[in-house]
Design a protein around this nucleic acid. Structure first.
Lengths: 265, 265
DNA sequence: CGTCATCTTGAGGAGTGTCAATAACTGTGG
DNA sequence: CCACAGTTATTGACACTCCTCAAGATGACG
């Protein structure tokens, strides 16, 4: 259970600020100054962070946990647009688009801590601090590029390819060991994220064995990244990242044979 | 044929700077100052502006004409990611992502003029001028939102719905008269943009009659926007825009019965 | 050990992709 | 103005992928 301070909000742990963050290139002082504008809230598994159509007040950064971004389309279908993890941000797009309502619904997939900033803060900081503005541009651009690549995948890849690609990315983004890791969320969520039905996803798993990927229950093993690569996207260059991690892992294994980074939860 | 000045580049006509442009909120002086950093080049129908994989040097703004952005996927399939028109920009994403090569290929679909800025210029201007930076953030955010909505459509809509939605957007974006306009580019391009085969697109047209949309050759008539709306996306709120244009058109028709804005070429 | 949620497996059908033949349009040269 | 070739689009037949509905299987947890 998280500690609460006098305001009733959780104390924050700035450790989540990693990756290619908005605070890159800022002094520790500036960074901490910025972080004080936000407050950290905790969400239970299944709890809604914000809902599609509600007024948009804040900018969000995920400190820990997992958040599903979804939309209910006019036809009544639910689509998962993204699955956010530690270090990801939400609603920057909408804020700079000057929208006043949320386009998507965000809900915690597991216990999650989120840092929340007033949207005015984001806007004004981008105006005042050019380093921050450039970081924001980079982050939003990166995200836009990912979405575009995603759309390309949907258009050109089969269900098994999509699944393989997703698993490799997952391994990469979460820092899992390709030799074996457990899915951090349900297969239904994955299927929804990939724009396919759960049944279709299930049926891809036997096929993926051929690509050197095996799934038994929640357990995933990426055995042969080369084989996988033949059937999946080069663009993502996941293989390279995964392989880098693999050899890193091997070195670590040599040094401390007992260490396992699989469950970082 | 465009005039050439002493540098061999075409003279520019800043009239293309419309829409929710990067120069919003800047003084005429600043704006013109900025425009002087760019030069306008002309491209023939079919000519390549830049190619996927080539080094990325510039930021682009379309002055007139139509540009197809496409990618060849690792499987060898070509996907059309976007179709740019007057006022659209290209490569901002890639520049702020710090990429050094082009992700996509751009080619002129018809005779096209493009204003070209050094990528350093874009970067430095965003750093120096906070209004410009915010405009950039807005533009990239808007684009990202569109791509996301597009992906949602691909995932949830049938081929006829996609086609109907595309035609309504087309009418809207190009400022055509819903009562009747000619497609400004080939149906193959549209099919490729919608991630479907030309044959599939062709087969949607008879179906679209039911939705109040008729296509005969290049001629398109959006007869019943309400009927179309029932079968297409609410999100896009194309109907509203089209309807606004419809009543605008009616007023114009009342005033000057002979005017026709269909062929703006 | 039963209950609930999550997942797997099966059978059938709708929607698209593929291949191939035909038709319409576009521009060129006689 | 017409015949011609080249491009672009339509139409048909068939195969394949994925969705839908339905029935089990597995796993988590009290």
């Amino acid at each position: 259970m998280p500690n609460k301070n006098s305001d009733g909000q959780d104390e924050y742990d700035p450790g989540f600020v990693r990756k290619d963050s908005l605070f890159d290139g800022l002094s520790e002082e500036e960074k901490n100054n910025f972080l004080e504008s936000g407050k950290v809230l905790s969400f239970r598994r299944g709890q809604t962070v914000f809902r599609q159509g509600e007024p948009l007040h804040s900018f969000y950064m995920i400190c820990s946990g997992i958040v599903q971004l979804s939309r209910v389309t006019p036809n009544g279908r639910e689509v998962t647009l993204d699955i956010l993890i530690e270090g990801d941000m939400a609603c920057a797009k909408e804020i700079f688009e000057m929208r006043d309502t949320h386009m998507v619904t965000a809900s915690a997939v597991k216990p999650t801590k989120i840092m929340i900033f007033p949207k005015r803060w984001l806007f004004e900081t981008a105006q005042k601090n050019s380093v921050f503005a450039i970081n924001l541009l980079a982050a939003i651009s990166r995200r836009a590029q990912m979405v575009e690549l995603d759309a390309e995948h949907q258009a050109t890849m089969s269900a098994p390819q999509l699944a393989a690609c997703f698993l490799m990315h997952l391994c990469n983004n979460h820092g899992f060991d390709p030799h074996g890791f457990d899915l951090p969320f349900s297969k239904s969520l994955i299927a929804s994220r990939l724009g396919m039905e759960l049944e279709t996803l299930s049926r891809t798993f036997p096929v993926l064995e051929k690509y050197g990927i095996s799934i038994k229950g929640k357990r995933v093993v990426l055995r042969d990244l080369d084989a996988a690569d033949k059937h999946v996207c080069d663009n993502c260059s996941v293989r390279e990242s995964c392989r880098a991690r693999l050899s890193l892992q091997r070195k670590k294994d040599d040094e401390k044979p007992l260490q396992s980074k699989t469950h970082s939860d």
